Each structure stands twice: as structure tokens, then as C-alpha cells.
Computed example of a mutant assay.
Amino acid sequence: MPTSNAPAPQGRGSIRWHLILGVMALLLVVLGLVGGTLYTLLRGQTDARVASEFARVADEFEVLATKGIDPATGGPFTDPEALLRVTLERTVLAPTEDVIGFVDGTASLEVAGAPLKARQDPQLVEVVGPLSVGASVVDGVVRTDQREYRYLVAPVRFDGSARSGALVVVADMDAERRLLNQMMQGYLWIALATLVASSVIVALWMRHLLRPIAELRDTAARISEEDLSERVVVRRGRRAGGPDDHRQPDAGPHRGRSPGPARPARRRRPRTAHPDHRRARPPRADGQRLTRRRARRPRHRPG
């Protein structure tokens, strides 16, 4: 019989790694889609929050200008600078926001102790300065050498006063995105840990799943090397993925089927327990049918 000394193809490892890499790629795509969607939603929520905060400040400024009382005079506001001073004193800012008061196109007022010093950015002041002398509320986004700003300009002018004023609310969008990026970094660490844990679990499951195939392959390789004494061990499981059943299959008519519940053994009556038992006589030499005769009781003879 011709034999071959070529080693058996090592396909188990490649199959296992192909499956593991496929699962890892699928999880990576899913986590990437979830992360991208989450980042887009959170960025949209950040922009909406900043816009709503600007709208709130503008509404409060309008109410104060139309219905507010000047603490210095006890009457309605008639001077834009006095209105801006009171507004800046009452404004509560987030760490990434700042408010500037423009009087006659000049940035002259700011909130004391504000973390964001937008008034010190000349490029921003150059952009919003001409808008402060307008007649309508304007919002927009500007990129300077320091950072990216989102601004809202709310002009104010009183009848009988030659002065003009404007409330300018700005937000540092770079700082807002840094906070969002820090949040996404936490998500990335969690996603990486999930990916590694899932890969380990899949690798262990694949190893358990491919073990019978590996044993069959190794046994087939040994048999092909003229070692005909090798046998393939058959293991049966009660359910898919369940514990292996190492019992050998039955040799009776129930082979291939799972054995049913054990039946209690019936107690057989001995053949000699009844006087009318039947005894089998040996077959006759001429090939006639085997006949059974009833045992006769011995007759009682008088003495």
C-alpha cells in the first residue's frame, strides 16, 4: 500500500482564527456604528443645549429691558449701559460661556470672575462689534486663533437716548467638544474591554466546538499511516452544546436511540413451582415435530 509522509493539513487553527477574527470584525463594526451614532447624537444635543441657553439669556434680557426696574432710579430703564450692568450681575454662566456688554459698539462690560475671557480675544470683538449697533438679534459661529466661538448678539436701544447697547453671549465650542471627547474616551475603553472579553469567550467556545473535528482529523491521520488499530471515539450529547455522553451505544435493537427509562425487572416464576408445568421432550430422530405431553400424576394403588 503506498504511503505518504506528508504532514496532515493543519486547518483547525486556521478555521478557529478565521471565526474569531470574523466575530471580532463584526463586533468592531457594531461598536463603531454605536459609537459614531452616540457621538453624533451627543454633539447635536450639545449644540441644542448651547442654543437653548442663548435663547434663555436673550429672553431674560428682553423682559428686563421692557418690564424691568432700574435700581438706581426706581423707574424703567432708559440707559443701555445701566441695563447691561444689571443684566451681567444677574446672569449665571456655565464654565464654557461668557457675556460681554457693548456700549456704542465698544466692549466695555464683562462678567467678573468668568472662566472664559472672551473680551480679551480681539478677533472675536472685531467680528461682533459691528453687529452690536444693529437692530436685530444675530447668532453665528466664528473661528479665531484662540478657539471656536458660538455667539449671540442682542442689541438694545431706548427712545430718547442716543446711546446704543448690545448683550453678546459667547460659548467656547472647543471646550464643549473636549468634554464630549472625554466622555467618548470612556466609551472607547468600555468598548475595547467588551471586544477583548467577547474575543476570549468566542475563542474558548470555538475550541470546545472544534475539538471533535480535531480528534477525528488526528485519528484519520494516524489511520492513514497504516496504524489500523486506531479507533474513533464516538461521543453523544443529550443536547447541542451539552455535556458529552461517554457511554457506548447499545448493541440491541435500540441502537442509535437514546435509552428510555429503566423498567423494573419482573420476577419470573420457577418452572417447577406448578404441578402442571410442561417439559420439553427432545426431538425425535426421524425429524418429526416436537411434542409436549402433559405430565401425569402417579396413580394410587391400593396396597
Rank of each mutant, 00 (worst) to 15 (best):
T3G: 09
G11S: 12
I15W: 09
H18K: 07
H18A: 13
L19E: 12
G22M: 08
M24R: 05
M24S: 12
A25D: 01
L26Q: 08
L26V: 09
G32W: 11
L38S: 08
L41T: 00
G44Q: 10
R49T: 01
E53P: 00
A58R: 00
A58I: 00
T66M: 04
K67G: 07
G68Y: 00
T73E: 06
D79K: 08
E81C: 02
L84F: 09
R85F: 04
F102P: 04
P115H: 06
V127Y: 07
S136R: 14
S136P: 03
V138D: 07
D139V: 03
T144E: 02
E148L: 12
L152T: 08
A154C: 05
R157H: 14
A162H: 11
G165F: 01
D172Q: 02
E176M: 11
R177L: 00
Q182Y: 09
Q185G: 11
A191M: 14
S199E: 02
P212M: 04
P212T: 07
D218K: 10
A221H: 08
R222Q: 14
I223G: 01
E225N: 13
E226N: 14
D227N: 14
E230F: 01
R231G: 07
D244S: 07
P253Q: 14
H254D: 15
S258P: 10
R266S: 13
R268I: 05
R269C: 03
T272P: 02
G287E: 00
R289E: 15
T291H: 08
R294M: 06
R294N: 11
